[in-house]
Computed example of a mutant assay.
Amino acid sequence: MQQGKQNPFEEQFGQEEQDQQPAAKSEDIRKWHEKVLSYKHLVRRWTAYFWGINKAFLYSYEDLEQTIWYILMVGLKEFDGRGDEEQFLNWYIRNKVVSIMMYGKKPPKCTHLPFTPIRFDYVSPDELAELNELFYSDGEDD
């Protein structure tokens, strides 16, 4: 990576302070992991629910679950402290997955490397050219 350039993850979620001590940083990471994993029940519930009603359109249960974990983490970053965090995440996950499945939207904050749990067989012909460009290009802009 070239020096002075931020990677896409840092651009999207903000770069951590560079002078933070390694021990403090690892403690922050540990707390973040614990917080994310504390919502495992939401991920399991929504994955099972959406798999049950949409499995014919999806690559796999694991792809759907991974997408929902990603949405959960973005939702945790988006939560502003007002109201109940779990209720917000419940609403956030539901609405974002519905947007992806029903309206063909990209996952939230997913601009550099978009992904989808939806099988290509079920992508509309109108979106096919765009998806082919995203998933089968060599990454160079023409």
Rank of each mutant, 00 (worst) to 15 (best):
I71N: 00
Q66M: 09
F57C: 04
F120V: 06
A24D: 14
A56N: 12
L131R: 10
E127P: 03
Q66Y: 02
K35G: 02
I53R: 15
K25S: 15
I53S: 15
L58Q: 04
E127G: 05
N54A: 12
S60N: 03
H112E: 15
K55I: 06
Q2G: 06
D142W: 00
Q18A: 09
D142K: 01
E86S: 14
L76A: 10
K105D: 07
Q21A: 15
K40V: 02
Q87P: 01
L89H: 05
Q15V: 12
Q6P: 02
E78R: 10
F57R: 10
E85D: 13
K77D: 13
M102W: 09
L37Q: 15
S26F: 06
V36C: 12
G81I: 04
L131I: 03
Y122M: 04
A129C: 03
H41I: 03
E133D: 13
L42K: 03
P108I: 04
V97T: 11
H33T: 14
E140H: 10
E130C: 00
A129R: 06
D28G: 08
M101E: 04
P8V: 06
R45H: 15
L131M: 09
I71M: 03
M101Q: 06
Y61L: 07
D138I: 05
D141W: 05
V74L: 04
Q6S: 10
E127S: 14
P125T: 06
D28W: 10
E10V: 03
F13M: 15
S38F: 02
G4W: 02
E16A: 03
N132A: 10
I68A: 07
F9H: 08
L42R: 05
D28C: 06
K105H: 11
Y59I: 00
A48D: 15
E140P: 01
I53N: 13
F9C: 04
S38E: 11
Y61M: 05
I93L: 09
L37A: 13
G52F: 13
P8H: 11
P22A: 03
V43E: 07
E127F: 12
E133A: 11
Q87R: 13
L76I: 12
D80K: 01
L72F: 14
E16V: 01
V43G: 04
L58H: 03
R94Y: 09
D63Q: 11
E65H: 06
I100V: 08
D84I: 07
